[in-house]
Amino acid sequence: MAPIVLFDGYSKFQDGNYYANCSCVLIKGPPNVVIDTMTAWDGERILEALQKHSLTCDDINYVVCTHGHSDHIGCNYLFKKAIHIVGHAVSFRDKYFSDHNFANGEEYIISDNIKVISTPGHTLQDVSVIVQSNMGITAITGDLFEKI
């Protein structure tokens, strides 16, 4: 159940333009979790990456976006059967769950080995995913470190 990096993120200034995209991470369970779904132009890449791991979008139980920037939420639309956690918001379809309070330090428990916690970041509602596996404890932190 160790995290699998499907795509490395990047942030760079080149030819007078700024380019950025987030890392996209898979936790193959159950439960199956995708963390940060890149830009809206990356859908085919994500589909192909999941297929290499014998998964489809319908197999994903949770989508966690470490914050709401466009390079982290762009392909959420692919995962129609999953619970979505975007920053501090937890939703399924048009239902937003109000019984969870990240702001008070409350952890969102996905499974015995996967939890989502509020963490400092470059928005006011960043979250990180903590995974415990046979490789130890891993934190998926989104844009914890960013360069311009």
Rank of each mutant, 00 (worst) to 15 (best):
R93D: 11
M38N: 11
Y96Q: 11
L55V: 00
V129C: 06
A49I: 07
T141D: 12
A89I: 14
G43L: 02
D71F: 04
I137S: 14
V34P: 04
G105I: 12
D94I: 08
F97D: 05
K80A: 04
I85K: 00
H88Y: 13
C75A: 03
R93K: 12
V129P: 09
M135S: 10
V63W: 12
H88V: 02
H100R: 05
T141A: 08
E48P: 00
M135P: 01
R93V: 08
D59F: 05
A103T: 11
A103C: 11
G121T: 01
T56Q: 05
K95A: 04
A139W: 03
Q132I: 05
D112H: 11
T123H: 08
L124A: 02
G105P: 13
C57V: 04
S98L: 15
D58R: 03
T138D: 09
V33D: 01
A103W: 13
G74Y: 05
V90A: 06
I35D: 02
L78E: 08
D99S: 10
S111F: 07
T37H: 15
L55E: 00
N134K: 10
M135R: 11
V34I: 15
I27M: 12
V131Q: 03
A82C: 12
G87D: 03
L78G: 00
G142I: 11
Y77E: 01
A40W: 11
V63Y: 10
K28I: 00
D58F: 05
V64Q: 01
M135Q: 08
L47A: 05
K80H: 10
G74W: 03
Q51V: 06
E106L: 15
W41N: 11
M38Q: 14
V34A: 12
N113M: 06
G87W: 14
N104D: 13
D99G: 15
N61I: 00
F102A: 08
I130Q: 13
H67I: 06
S91V: 00
L124W: 05
G142W: 14
K115P: 04
N32T: 04
I85R: 07
H67F: 05
D58G: 06
I35N: 02
L47W: 05
F102C: 05
T119Q: 12
T56V: 06
N104T: 14
G105M: 15
T119K: 08
L50Y: 03
P30T: 09
